[in-house]
Amino acid sequence: MDSLKTQQVTFKVFRFNEETDYLPYYNTYTLDVTHEEVVLDILNRIKWDHDGSLSYRRSCRHGICGVCAIKTNGKAVLACKTRLFDLIDIFGNEITIEPLSTKRAIKDLIIDKKDFWDKHAQAKPYLEADIDEHPAQENLVSPHDAEKLLEADYCIQCGACHYSCPSLEINEQYMGPAAFAAAYRFSADVRDDASIERLHIVNEEAQGVWDCVKCMECAEVCPKEVNPIEKITKLHNMIFEAAVAKNNVATRHAVGFAHSIEKHGLLDEGELVRYSEGNIGVLKHVPVALKMFAKGKIVLPWNMPKSDKLDEIKKLVKSSSTVKF
């Protein structure tokens, strides 16, 4: 493949004009692409050589401004950073080019990103601190403290993760991976005073971190290796450490694992559901549980299997626990 200098690719490009079109449609272009061309080069060639009305966002052309994010065969990419030959390796020679979110399209590949910016703002993506207006010296952050921000600082707000997140697609209140990465970025900053306030925001049901389905797509898709799901895990930890955690089904679900492991080594699946939901909430699971029971899928408490060398596990749970609930 590397020895090939050009390849013929068929592009199906999403077209839609909010002002004139009732439904979107696709235009097809077959082009020879070279091994050094990125998706943005192709969009430019289509616009300059074939159809000047094709609309898309681009600015820096260096993977920095974040405006050129689109989807190719469902994979969100920065158009200016993604080589066609790499896409051909994954998908073959037919590439469908769409906006990050087709339902938010304004014109062709340009979307209304308002929900992204609103949620980003909701995370308070700035430092809140009492500033001495006439400081005697610089406000220094040690390298050790700066490292705690991990890669959260690299985010260019491109929206690739946000518009690939399945939770957000279904639950419109969910703040999404980029907003959480920002919440972590500022809450982990030693100069910031609003950490607890932010933790309360991301701890809210429906909008907060508990609605993450842990699909890992945000880590996969991010072009800047921000790894938002890792930051989401950190926020979970901070919520417990700062005692911001409420006593609800989501928190009990996480804590329940520790209880169960201490008792059996293994997870007691039935008890986890009962503990998480509470004695009343658990009732809604009874119909499915009965069906499972009939098929030999429910282990009764007195038959609960245990890990060998359970004493080791009990000892480690006692000695290695770092938080309380």
Binding site: N237, V255, G265, V323
Partner: peptide, 26 residues
């Protein structure tokens, strides 16, 4: 591996990341 414990199923680490590491390392 009959001695193995639960891995925490991607939830234990939300509560106690270090405990999750210790159990999985075991």
């Amino acid at each position: 591996l009959t001695e193995a414990s639960c891995c925490g199923a991607s939830h234990l680490q939300d509560y106690d990341d270090f405990l999750s590491l210790v159990l999985n390392a075991r």
